[in-house]
Design a protein around this nucleic acid. Structure first.
Length: 257
DNA sequence: ATGGCTACGATCCGTAGA
């Protein structure tokens, strides 16, 4: 099973690139973030024609998440149960016996801001949710845009970013709290090129300079980690005209499907 | 140099992303 996650930064603008990427990369499951689109306007028919079922939680202008799958999606749950939130950031579904939780974690804007506090509260709620999901589903993946660069090697210029939002210690502690539930960062299970990132600023020639952050991740439960044979980031879509600022991240699993 | 792109939904600029 080929699992992937991609923050598309507007499903409407990126639909042609998404359809091309589905055809070339052929993921079995793809988690999408930042749809910026209401459910009613989600291009379900085009995606279905490409061979993918979808579970969508969307809103106008901001946020919005979806799970695409070549096989049917079961037991769809939107949001973090018990955590009241207007912002559509989480959707979960079961595919081929694998529980998939798609997340668009808050940006946090700036350390000490109201949005930063929300980010930390949100991560605490996510941890509570996942603690239960890990128990319920031995085969679990949490995939998405976490808006946290876990370590300095995930940051192009750690000195410049020191203490900033996305790398601050409380955010990294929130990330490690997810790992402490028994989840593994699939990308780091394998040898990887140095300076591997998943997001590059549109400004300042960020991509050309490889001035990026690795903030898009696929976490795997122990059972899935044992079945994982590869982890990667596909930079190709970031090279296109009018790209998303994020590239897709992938994990390959040897599970029967 | 604290900006610099991009998308959106409201106008001819503000908000947000990271």
């Amino acid at each position: 099973m080929k699992l992937a996650t991609w923050n598309v930064n507007s499903i409407k603008v990126r639909l042609p690139q998404l359809l091309d990427w589905l055809a070339s990369a052929q993921p079995d499951v793809l988690c999408l973030q930042e749809l910026k689109c209401e459910e009613a306007k989600f291009p379900r028919a085009e995606i279905e024609a490409a061979g993918y079922a979808s579970a969508v939680s969307g809103q106008k202008t901001y946020n919005g998440v979806a799970i695409l799958s070549r096989t049917p999606l079961a037991d769809v749950v939107a949001g973090i149960p018990g955590f009241a939130d207007e912002q559509k950031r989480v959707i979960a579904a079961t595919v081929q016996g694998v529980r998939v939780v798609c997340v668009y974690c808050p940006n946090g804007q700036a350390v000490g801001s109201e949005k930063y506090d929300y980010k930390l509260r949100w991560f605490a709620a996510l941890k509570g949710y996942l603690a239960e999901e890990v128990r319920k589903y031995p085969r679990l993946t949490v995939a998405g845009d976490f808006n946290v660069a876990p370590e300095d090697r995930d940051v192009h210029d750690p000195k410049a970013w020191e203490g900033q939002v996305h790398v601050s210690e409380p955010e990294r502690a929130a990330w490690r709290a997810l790992l402490a539930l028994g989840l593994q960062d699939s990308f780091r299970m394998f040898e990887q090129p140095e300076k591997s990132y998943s997001w590059w600023d549109y400004r300042m020639l960020g991509f050309r300079r490889n001035a990026g952050l690795r903030i898009d991740h696929l976490l795997l439960s122990q059972d899935l980690a044992r079945a994982c044979s590869a982890g990667s980031i596909d930079k190709a879509p970031r090279k296109l005209e009018r790209p998303s600022d994020h590239a897709p991240a992938l994990a390959e699993l040897n599970v029967t499907r």
